[in-house]
Every structure is written in C-alpha cells, then in structure tokens.
C-alpha cells in the first residue's frame, strides 16, 4: 500500500507505477530529478532547502528552469523520448493566478519517468500525466540535455 493519500494522485492507479525505492526523507523530487540523493532542493525564502547558487531563490517556474539549466538542461517541446537525450518535466499548479512549481520527474533510458513523491517512495511511471492532480498540477515545462 502506498503511503501517500490516494486523493493527491487521482490518476495514479496501481498498475500505472512501480515503487523503486523506500521512503527517504533526505532528498526530495527536485533533488531526485537532478540526480542528487543527499539534499533537498527547494528555493524557500527561509533558506532551508539547497538551491543552486546563481538561480533565483523564488518559487516560480522560471527559477526552476534556471536551476535545471545550470545542470545542463535546456527547454524543449515535449516529453517524447529522444535517443541520447535525458529529459525532465517540471510540474506546477495554479495558485492565486500564478503558476507555483510543485514537482519534477526525470526520464529514464527506457522512456519511463522516475519521481520521488514528497517524503514517500520513488516510483517509475510510464506517463507524466499519471501524477496530475491537486497537489502537483500538471507538467508546464520539459527540458533536455545530452545523456551522460
């Protein structure tokens, strides 16, 4: 049984994902998408989370794009797998008329996506849309870089 509230992810059915690691509080989804399992990445104004120096420390989509750009990613049009390229998807939810970033997922070699769900498990899911819902909203930006 997953630990997250089912209502957070109405599209995430048991057959649409595979848990790939246990609960871990040390990193969050943004860190996981960036390949960092030692820290939590978040541009909170209290200065709790790690945020790449040079990227704006604000909870906006452009700030998240800037943070991933510093990891070598550039904005692209879709999440369709492309040979030799690694993609990430940034999710956001509309909050008081503004887009507030909520989550990031990273594309695996097989075209599926890997996500860390809050403080819960990492999962592999075939579709980005399976995380759509009230908590993560939906994908607003795809980015890509050369897979190393």
């Amino acid at each position: 049984m997953p630990g997250w509230p089912a209502s957070d992810f109405p599209s995430l059915t048991p057959d649409s994902y595979t848990p790939t690691s246990p609960v871990d509080f040390r990193y969050n989804c943004i860190a996981w998408a960036a390949g960092d399992q030692s820290r939590r990445w978040w541009p909170d104004l209290m200065g709790i989370g790690y945020w790449p120096p040079g990227a704006p420390r604000e909870e906006t989509v452009p700030a998240f794009v800037a943070a991933f750009a510093m990891q070598g990613y550039e904005v692209c049009n879709s999440g369709q797998p492309e040979p030799g390229l690694e993609k990430i998807a940034i999710y956001a939810v509309r909050d008081s008329g503004l887009l507030a970033p909520t989550h990031a997922a990273r594309q695996l070699n097989n075209g599926n996506w890997t996500s860390k769900l809050g403080d819960f498990d990492d999962i592999e899911h075939a579709e980005c849309d399976s995380l759509n819902g009230p908590i993560y909203g939906s994908v607003v930006v795809y980015m890509r870089r050369v897979r190393t």
Partner: peptide, 14 residues
C-alpha cells in the same frame, strides 16, 4: 504528516 501529504515544497509543508 497527514496534512502535508505528498508535497515536496518546504514552504507548503511549513
């Protein structure tokens, strides 16, 4: 812990 659910946002959690 129940209230924050699956949010990844340090701010929302706080």
């Amino acid at each position: 812990r129940r209230e924050r659910g699956a949010t990844s946002s340090i701010t929302k959690s706080a």
